[in-house]
Amino acid sequence: MMIEVENLSVRYGTAYAARDVSFSVARGESFGIVGESGSGKSTVLRALAGLNRDWTGTIRVGGETVTPARDRAFFRRVQMVFQDPYGSLHPRQTIDRALSEPLLVHGIKDIETRIAAALTEVALPPSTRFRYPHQLSGGQRQRVAIARALMAGPEVLLLDEPTSALDVSVQAEVLNLLSDLQEKRGLTYILVSHNLAVVSHLCARIGVMQGGEMVEQLTAEDLRAGRTKHPHTEALRRLSVELEETDAQHGKAA
């Protein structure tokens, strides 16, 4: 198991933002967490990433138990991509600088060739290298964020709503890119999203969260086929299917 989470709880004051959440993800697998806002899905991800240190429970990465305070080696194995590509890049640093930062921190050599390779890997033209984030489109910025997360060669990528701020056509490109990268690098993904279609597209297994608890875990196949156990899962599924149906799909089905 690449990631094991047992009884993870996060409290803000007396209220639980996440309560007794347990799940595990195998190496090279994608695990999706869906839920509405306030369900605790992002809380779990941030605790996992080490951005929030006030949690209880057990988190194991590659079999090793991790503490609330993380060391540098952890950040070489686990990286994160944020929701908002406008907020996750430093406004005064060029793409070059953003991509070289992880290399400098971890003392990795040949920055020049690595940055050029990273841009190619996420299909960004070399001309973007010395641009500033505000000169790029949302989709390009999210590609930069992905490239930055991959700079130090992590094994696990935590994806926090990576496409929800993007146009649908760009979303498709980014989701395809994520699939390709996973195949090529054998990455383990944990994807948090409110969009069931996105989660079940990328992830074979899905955990559904409500009110801080993971109320159900099921495979994407079961979700598609409607083999759900918890009423909240079913409610989310039905809504998603209803709203995505246009006559285009009806037409296809007929």
């Binding site: 080490g50 951005l51 993380r70 950040f75 990286q79 944020f82 930062e101 992880p102 921190v105």
Partner: peptide, 26 residues
């Protein structure tokens, strides 16, 4: 608390480096 500072923290950069290289310039 901006995401871009979180992102730097996730590279494993020290607090000193974050303040000096990422916050102070702003």
């Amino acid at each position: 608390n901006a995401d871009f500072i979180s992102a730097v923290r996730l590279t494993g950069a020290s607090a000193g480096r974050i303040v000096l290289r990422h916050i102070a310039p702003l």
